[in-house]
Amino acid sequence: MNCDVCQQTSATVFLTQIVEGKMQKVNLCEACSKEKGVTNSTGFALADVLLGLGAAQEIERGGGVQKCPACGFSHADFKKTGRLGCARCYDTFAEGLSGLLKGMHKGTVHTGKQPVRAARAFEAQIQLKTLHRELRKAVAEENYESAARLRDQIRRLEVPVPGGAAGTAGVV
């Protein structure tokens, strides 16, 4: 049986792990198991090994975009490293990643901790949407007094939340 990673050398390391009730199997040669950190005892996850295999095909299926516009990372790079290039890669390769994440995790939506800053930014966005809707309505109804008030409110909210906008550098 050949190694699942290089497909060349015969496999000597056989791994089985049950993840969420699904059996996953990987066969590796000596060299690849070393490279994937299987033999070093601290924290190897089978998912990491699997990532280099099915994962790259999975994100390729996302079609269209070949490179992340923010960092230049490509499918081929993912295949090599099993890691992504930057935070924006999650949007770039969203389509392909979604299947991968579904198979890998318990759910598909984060329900835990949020940075206060991010939580505030999302709230502001939702509020802005509501205000814009009300503004359109006010204008349509020729209710200029409330339209002026709404415009003021919108202007105040649109002062950028520090670090809130996508793509700005991470240091405040």
Partner: peptide, 17 residues
């Protein structure tokens, strides 16, 4: 520090695991 955070995916990390 402004951490990379996604409304659906949460904290974004180099490895999807």
């Amino acid at each position: 520090l402004d951490f990379a955070f996604h409304p659906e995916l949460g904290y974004l990390t180099a490895c999807p695991t």
